[in-house]
Write a protein that binds this DNA or RNA. Structure first.
Lengths: 338, 338
DNA sequence: CTGAAAGCGCTTACAG
DNA sequence: CTGAAAGCGCTTACAG
């Protein structure tokens, strides 16, 4: 590998390293003549300024870190892609932090901001990996930061959200409208804000319809397919089987549908299934999955924009950017049997 | 945000900055007493060494870049996850380069190595984004680098591969074994090495079975679901419809199955479908997709290991690491009709 | 428009 | 075991 430095370019084009730097950073300060000469030398050698030298001097890294529990997940993948695209446009690079649900790794990635390796951070987990002192305003203690998907319990943080409770309520209402009264819920991971909100929405919709909440119909999951499979198996064993199942994620709904097919249930004639997310595979399932759509690309794009705003030294207009969800009715839900 | 530097720690614990640095990098060189004092100050302040200072000095960034065409893709997502995990274990951070098939972006990410921002690069596209001079051995001109998934046409590069041709041949052989003779192929993007190899395997299997290659049965796709849908629509219009379809990716196979269901074909009774990749959703389809499994996690892990080897200054034992594929027979393939 | 010089925050031979 | 000092490669006020 080459190790051409700014000095090489300087001597090759007969100017000082200051002028080389200016040619790159503020070309308008350099005479056309010199500029040309310098640019030529740069091109000939393939010189790329060493980012560390520059960063050390400017105290800016040009990076942002993304902290996510699992990028394999289609929801997260969709979001990160929009982030990357938006970051790239603004000249930032994305450092990928897949935490695999380990706190230690979360901390590790947060430290990249503390150590100056990234200028800002996007957090998709419910924990704030920075220690706060109570005697100072929080905004002064935190780096540029945006939180999404799993809300951190702190009102001073910039967030991009959807209304999970209303989304869940809409899902259940859709089922109620179809005549279902025995509606199961397959939850996400214990105590995650998104699951808590969706559960609240589920309960609210039932309560409003004067239907009693039945604990047996509420199953714990973890948003992944496998847990949807298991949850459905449990539900099928119940004496009073549900006629409809609201899964808090599409992945779990997909798992649930697999179980139903396995035991020869017809969807939706025997049992309706509705998901949450609208990942790209949902419309490709058999039957096509009815779900609550999260605007993944928009979430990613907005996260990055709010972060960029902070990175530029501005205060974003609002702490919370709320994006709309949407009920997408497809084929996996239908009228209650009989 | 805090800006605690090594000097702050030094003065707080009454030692020189050299000793602070040593406490962190080579604690065995520091007396237990001093070490304790320094560590305490570090803990109390939450000091994190500035990476740029260190990197500038050591000429190591501790980062690796991953250049991929689309991380939303389940194949890539699976691979990158293993990479990230392996990198993290070795103390490296992953810079994510989603090129979205733009050459400019590919170059951009490659420049991160040239500019010292990353110590090594993992390339999953068929282009080498480094200019080579013919008068020097290639190995001296390239940074630590590993290529996978889409082979770069250069024998001096470290690669992690599967035998795409043999994989495709196995897929078609499976179909032949079931009695099919009219077998369509849905290819990936034009001129990509993986598609060329799989096409060669498809042709070889047919030729070996004394079946003539029929151009009408070979459809161009791009590995994505949408193109599988379109390809299947084309095939269904043919006077002599195929009884089996080999899609060069699972995503396309999933699209093809959707089209078949749309027009009331039964899979596999009317038409068999086989994919390539074995992404996690394939086993969740209806019917469950028969496919050629790529060991995604293994690919990712091996890529990183071969890169790590180079990063440590060693020469990896072999230029090419070949991993096994596997035919996974599920429900989407069956005997030829009649 | 250009150059000399300082300094960003670290690490590490060198000397003691 | 520890410190003083040099230097990694840049950028940018300052002076001219």
């Amino acid at each position: 590998m080459s190790k051409i430095g700014i000095k090489d370019i300087a001597s090759q084009s007969g100017v000082s390293s200051a002028t080389v730097s200016r040619t790159l950073r503020s070309p308008e300060l350099v005479s056309e003549d010199t500029r040309k000469r310098v640019l030529e030398a740069i091109k000939a050698t393939g010189y790329k300024p060493n980012r560390f030298g520059a960063s050390l001097r400017t105290q800016k890294s040009g990076n942002v870190v993304v902290v996510m529990p699992d990028i394999t997940n289609q929801v997260n993948a969709g979001i990160i892609r929009a982030i990357e695209s938006e970051a790239h446009k603004a000249g930032y690079c994305v450092l990928l932090g897949d935490t695999q649900n380990q706190e230690e790794r979360e901390q590790h990635y947060a430290d990249m901001v503390t150590s100056g390796q990234a200028d800002g951070i996007l957090i998709f987990t419910p924990n704030l990996p920075f220690s706060l002192k109570t005697d100072k305003p929080i905004s002064e203690q935190l780096p540029p930061l945006v939180n999404s998907c799993e809300e951190i319990a702190n009102d001073d943080i910039y967030k991009v959200v959807i209304d999970n409770k209303a989304g869940a309520r809409t899902a259940v209402q859709h089922l109620l409208d179809l005549g279902h009264t025995c509606i199961a819920a397959v939850m996400g991971p214990k105590d995650t804000p998104s699951t808590l909100d969706r559960l609240a929405g589920y309960k609210q919709a039932l309560t409003e319809a004067n239907i009693e909440i039945n604990r047996n119909l509420i199953i714990r999951g973890d948003y992944r397919t496998e847990s949807g499979i298991e949850a459905m198996e449990k539900l099928l064993r119940l004496r009073h089987r549900p006629t409809a199942v609201f899964c808090f994620s599409d992945d779990m709904a997909i798992g649930a549908m697999n179980t139903l097919r396995e035991y020869d249930y017809r969807i939706p004639q025997d049992i309706s299934v509705i998901g949450f997310d609208d990942i790209s595979y949902s419309k490709l399932m058999y039957p096509k999955l009815t779900t609550i759509r999260q605007p993944l690309e928009d979430i990613g794009r907005n996260c990055m924009r709010v972060l960029l705003e902070q990175l530029r030294g501005n205060k974003p207009a609002q702490k919370i950017t709320e994006l709309p969800f949407e009920l997408v009715v497809r084929q996996s839900t239908g009228p209650v049997p009989r």
